[in-house]
Design a binder for these strands. Structure first.
Lengths: 210, 210
DNA sequence: GTCTATATGCGGATAGAC
DNA sequence: GTCTATCCGCATATAGAC
């Protein structure tokens, strides 16, 4: 942590706390305390709590962008697995965003538009991903199938980690990581996968269900 | 509204406000005002805000229970559509529960166990539903397929309405209702549906994608 | 059961010294 | 840049009269 600016440390600590306890439950006093600075100093760097949230959201956008980029370049199932894993790791690192998204948007309405734009970008990328797989003969799916698959993928990437919060602790350890999330998403595609790509799916199935 | 007790009116107004603006954003003062009573009177009926939330949660459980019951009695696809529709209507009527579930559980940890129990009951019911469809020859799916399908159904029923908040307004009007939610869930089953049951799916597809 | 008035505390934000 | 001290407002919860 030495060498990093106070400003960065505030953002890091905030992210950590927001992820763990939720944005609503973490006060600015708390952030200051855990950063080992005074409330006044915190206010020097960020005039409002909203500014902290907004900065973190921008970082989230920056972290997700290359994942979506990668998604539009796939040509095989294991590419998909990789990009899904990347994406879920990014979302996991900023899980406070989708954790209670309704509250976040209610509190800071300015984030509604960028949040929706992000989801829309995700939808477009997912659609492209499915279309490419279909073109490559990995997927056998109609236009309508692809549309629904893309929607399923976006829904899953945005909401999965919120859902794991609702599964009992023992099951949660099994479902909580980005690995299972990626596997889960792949199973959405699996009924449409044809040819030797199935082998890869079966390999993953053994890994996550065995 | 005449004839209903003040206590019931408080619960109704709270539900309405919680659903619309989120539990965190609605104060007890606000509830009192909208119920046309004083804060003191509110406190006479419910000592704490938590008691209101807990009571509403119990009502939610009561509303969901028959839906899960119905789910375990299906034998054809249109039964599924009916029970899904029922379920989504129930969840929609109490959408504040899953709206920011992480916040709710953080604020009132006593609800964590009942909430997880509810999700688990939903999972068991979904599993049973899929198994019955498979036994009836409507679904062609392995044990592992059924396990994942059940998980997909639970995930969708609990998180779908939170997700719709993230789609832009024009798309939202299309996706927001219980009808589309039920259709979406059915498409998760559709790749496994065999025989004449497909006709029903195509009928629904025309209705929701056309 | 219902009211008015108020206690109490917390969270966001700020002032001003160093 | 960083601190201490503090203001302000809101939300929960309560007291006590009617």
């Amino acid at each position: 942590m030495a060498g990093t600016s106070t400003r960065d440390r505030i953002l890091e600590v905030s992210l950590e706390l927001f992820n763990r306890e939720g944005m609503a439950a973490v006060s600015t006093h708390r952030i200051a305390t855990e950063t080992d600075i005074s409330p006044g100093n915190l206010h020097y760097h960020f005039k409002t709590k909203q500014q902290i949230v907004t900065w973190l959201f921008r970082r989230f956008e920056g972290r997700i962008a290359p994942c979506l980029e990668a998604a539009t370049g796939v040509s095989a199932i294991d590419d998909v697995w990789l990009t899904l894993h990347m994406t879920f790791e990014a979302i996991d690192a900023f899980r406070f965003v989708y954790r209670d998204i309704a509250f976040l948007l209610h509190e800071y309405p300015e984030l509604e538009e960028p949040a929706q734009t992000l989801v829309m970008a995700n939808l477009i990328a997912s659609r492209e991903l499915c279309a490419r797989l279909a073109a490559a003969g990995v997927l056998k799916a109609s236009i309508e199938d692809i549309e629904m698959l893309a929607l399923q993928m976006v829904f899953t990437t945005t909401c999965w980690f919120s859902f794991t919060r609702l599964t009992p602790r023992n099951a949660r350890s099994k479902h909580a990581g980005p690995g299972f999330a990626a596997y889960y998403t792949l199973t959405l595609l699996s009924p449409y996968v044809v040819g030797e790509a199935r082998d890869y799916l079966n390999y993953l199935r053994g890994k996550y269900l065995g």
